[in-house]
Design a protein around this nucleic acid. Structure first.
Lengths: 172, 172
DNA sequence: ATCAATTTGCTAATCTATTAGCGAATTTCC
DNA sequence: GGAAATTCGCTAATAGATTAGCAAATTGAT
């Protein structure tokens, strides 16, 4: 009725995805705030906690944090005593990032709270809903190509330098 | 095998949602870049294009841009000649934001490109997949409460001051 | 009418995203 | 072996997100 003819008939899918992400994140944010770390820092802690050490480009790929951002984030995390960075011997360009014992202890302390939050979300939405939701998201990511992949661009590399084989520990 | 026992058994849902959003957005970003506007600016143009004018808190709600960010975004858009801001007469606190003819022309020029991109995405994923995906996201947003809603907080208002009845033009 | 509480838009400070690009180390090709 | 292309991590500049808070205008209660 009061809607003008805009020629835009589709809903804003990125916006809806943003809303959904924020809605979910709102349940975890208190845990992060209580431990004094940001979302991005937690993503990094999360993947490093599941391994032992990674190189920046691997973290960039796994955490979907752009390379320029990663520099500052790791720098701050180092000052906070959360990670250590040391050069790789046989390749002076590369760096190894690892969690400090302090950060590892923090992750261990946070893990049960994170898990409990997932349980509450599953209880609210239903376990199968979440399972189906996850597989739907997986299907989207498996089917819809990143725009520019297989394009005329001479390198074919994306924003996150998806060169390194998908190590992808996208397991919150 | 090589996975240590971290106590974190759930996948990182916010991260997967971030990936999905970025994947979808990558298809629209070229259009935005070609027109020299950012994602957030486009969200604002989009909702204002569908109406005539809105107040900042309504845009904040509809576009999921926080109030502090909105100040800077609108300020830049005003300098770019995309929007106008004028005080409401009977309430000197409030402001009315409207698109300039220039921005309206730009939106009209972008609309078919945006629509074509949605068509390509639907063609890739299947129309029903996208439809189901949308309704799944809607169900999540309808069922999972924002953390803190109905909590001890004395006002119950969220980050986006969801006071104003959902005008929500979440129609890309 | 007056004082308290709320609403609206805003600023400040810190952190992350995006885009562009750079230097050094390494690999590839000839 | 040496030049070209690539890889890796980084800096710079601008835009947004997050958290906290604040002044002015309005509303509500007394």
């Amino acid at each position: 009725m009061s809607l003008k003819s805009t020629g835009l008939h589709h809903r804003n899918l990125p916006l809806v995805l943003l809303q959904a992400r924020e809605r979910v994140l709102s349940h975890f944010r208190p845990i992060l705030n209580a431990n004094g770390i940001t979302e991005q820092q937690w993503r990094i802690v999360r993947v490093l906690y599941a391994t032992t050490s990674l190189e920046p480009r691997e973290i960039v790929e796994a955490c979907r944090i752009s390379s320029p951002s990663m520099a500052g984030v790791l720098s701050r995390m180092q000052e906070l005593g959360l990670v250590t960075r040391r050069r790789v011997n046989h390749d002076q360009r590369r760096v190894r990032v690892a969690l400090t014992p302090r950060a590892r202890a923090m992750a261990a302390r946070m893990a049960p709270q994170i898990e409990a939050t997932y349980s509450r979300i599953e209880q609210c939405m239903g376990n199968e809903f979440i399972a189906r939701f996850q597989s739907t998201l997986d299907q989207l990511l498996a089917t819809l190509p990143e725009y520019g992949s297989g394009e005329a661009g001479r390198d074919g590399s994306s924003k996150y330098e998806d060169a390194a084989a998908n190590i992808v520990f996208d397991i919150v």
